[in-house]
Design a binder for these strands. Structure first.
Lengths: 119, 119
DNA sequence: TAAATTGTATTATTGATATAATACAATAAT
DNA sequence: ATTATTGTATTATATCAATAATACAATTTA
């Protein structure tokens, strides 16, 4: 799977975002085991330490749980996942509309632009 | 005017974005003189060196021109401003739709969410 | 003319981030 | 029982970003 890591922001932040996205959109199935730190790091072509940092952030959010010698597991709390997905969507909409509004684009123009996009 | 600088990304990048936004949306009038580096830095509560770095980025883009002992002037090329505004709007729409799509939100849901926003 | 303001450059210091290279104890796998 | 794998921790190095503190020449302002 594609890991598009850029140089414009801290790598570990981008890893957190990508991992979270994959949990929220179901790419990583609730309750299942994740690849190991080293394998994930290899896949994303980053240092294992950096991936470890990202995973520890995800554990803080309750999205994964790390079992010492077994691996990292996606949470089985599907309501948490669903709620966070809704929350993230709302956040993105708010951020986007804030930017667009500041540019002086109207709501109608915005919807027109979105209608031209492929989904 | 409000300068909302956060810690999540390089400060000078955020300054470039805010300055560019103000030029594109007309807050800073085409052809007029800008505040001095020091005054802008004071207003945004950042180091003058950081503001200077942001201004030099804007000059690269052609949005301002610096005159040695006189000050920084907003470009009088209104077509450039208009074009960049359209370009930025398209970019934001594309980025937003990409994120929303990855979350598994449909176009209809997205438009519904936007309709609830204030503009 | 004298003083203040301008953009710009320089040097130094600090903190955050990323990578590298190991290391270890506990458990899983063979 | 032995080996391999796991998350985790440590130490070191390099780079970028931000701030601080000046400095200077040219020009504008008083």
């Amino acid at each position: 799977m594609a890991w598009e890591i850029k140089n414009d922001r801290p790598v570990y932040i981008q890893l957190v975002e990508e991992l979270e996205l994959r949990i929220l959109n179901g790419t990583y199935t609730s309750g299942t085991k994740l690849l190991s730190v080293r394998d994930l790091a290899s896949e994303a072509q980053v240092n294992p330490n950096t991936m470890q940092k990202a995973l520890s952030e995800l554990e803080k959010k309750g999205l994964i749980s790390s079992r010492r010698t077994s691996g990292n597991y996606i949470t089985d709390d599907e309501k948490l996942i669903s709620d966070l997905r809704t929350e993230l969507a709302s956040f993105e909409v708010g951020e986007f509309c804030g930017k667009i509004k500041k540019l002086g684009i109207t709501k109608e123009e915005t919807i027109e632009l979105i209608n031209r996009e492929e989904f």
